[in-house]
């Protein structure tokens, strides 16, 4: 049996809102030690989502036996809208379940809402992602990166990320012209999350689809910082930390044809 209780329904709501525009169907893998993990790839095979909700994400978590919950995220999203952000949210599934029970509890009133979501058999292949040695790692405020991704999408289909030891530059070239934003590393002692950290082994210059970056930055609601790991001629990793665990996006770059 699975029983996972979130202190705030908003956490799961934000997670699902961050991934459901990229993938519609995905398997939630549940286990006592790892909590709930998900790997899902978008239909175009360009963006991979790796989610890890450790047991620490939950106020209470138990999973007696490993289980896989096949979920339609659009349907799950409809149910999650029924609860309030501050509610307790509990996911309950029997062994070999054909449905997932979702329970919202208001913390002040004696209101309990229960929903049952039908599960699906989802046949999806899993990719092996080795721990890569990255050429560059950038940690910056997620709001800043989100603004760049959203603003530059109005100018161009692609966003170039150029990292040197001194700076990270985001650059877009479109029909109306071009633009760039440069960030230099800095440490904000009063607000550490406002700091910008650049670790560079080798300079990198990569280009990504603006549409995918716009999907990725939807997760900015989950964390005030984002870590971007870049390696020449390889997919980039965009990571948002959860209270315990992470939401990662791997995005394949664009190349000169």
């Amino acid at each position: 049996m699975l029983e996972g209780k979130f202190d705030q329904a908003s956490l799961l709501k934000k997670i699902i809102d961050s991934i459901r525009d990229s993938v519609k169907l995905c398997n939630f893998n549940c286990s006592q030690n790892d909590g709930i993990t998900v790997q899902a790839i978008d239909d175009s095979r360009v963006l991979l989502i790796a989610l890890k909700m450790d047991p620490g994400c939950f106020q209470e978590f138990r999973c007696d036996r490993d289980m896989v919950l096949g979920l339609d995220l659009e349907s799950l999203g409809k149910i999650l809208k029924q609860g309030n952000n501050e509610d307790y949210l509990t996911l309950i599934a029997e062994d070999n379940p054909d449905s997932l029970l979702i329970v919202f509890e208001d913390k002040k009133k004696d209101r309990i809402s229960e929903f049952s979501l039908k599960l699906m058999d989802i046949d999806s292949d899993v990719l092996t992602i080795d721990d890569m040695d990255n050429d560059c790692s950038i940690t910056m405020p997620s709001a800043d990166f989100s603004k760049i991704a959203r603003d530059f999408k109005t100018m161009s289909e692609s966003l170039q990320i150029i990292v040197t030891k001194e700076s990270v530059k985001f650059k877009a070239e479109g029909q109306i012209g071009s633009g760039s934003v440069i960030f230099k590393p800095h440490t904000d002692l009063d607000n550490p999350d406002e700091s910008i950290k650049i670790d560079m082994n080798q300079p990198v210059n990569l280009t990504f689809g603006a549409k995918y970056l716009n999907d990725i930055v939807k997760a900015s609601t989950l964390s005030s910082t984002i870590t971007i790991k870049l390696t020449d001629k390889a997919p980039a990793l965009f990571e948002f930390k959860l209270p315990s665990g992470y939401l990662r996006y791997y995005l394949a770059p664009k190349f000169e044809d």
Binding site: L127, I129, T207, A252, K254
Partner: peptide
């Protein structure tokens, strides 16, 4: 002209 690459060319199926 830029061409979008696929994750399949970087990651193997598990």
């Amino acid at each position: 002209k830029l061409k979008q690459s696929s994750l399949n060319s970087f990651f193997k199926k598990a």
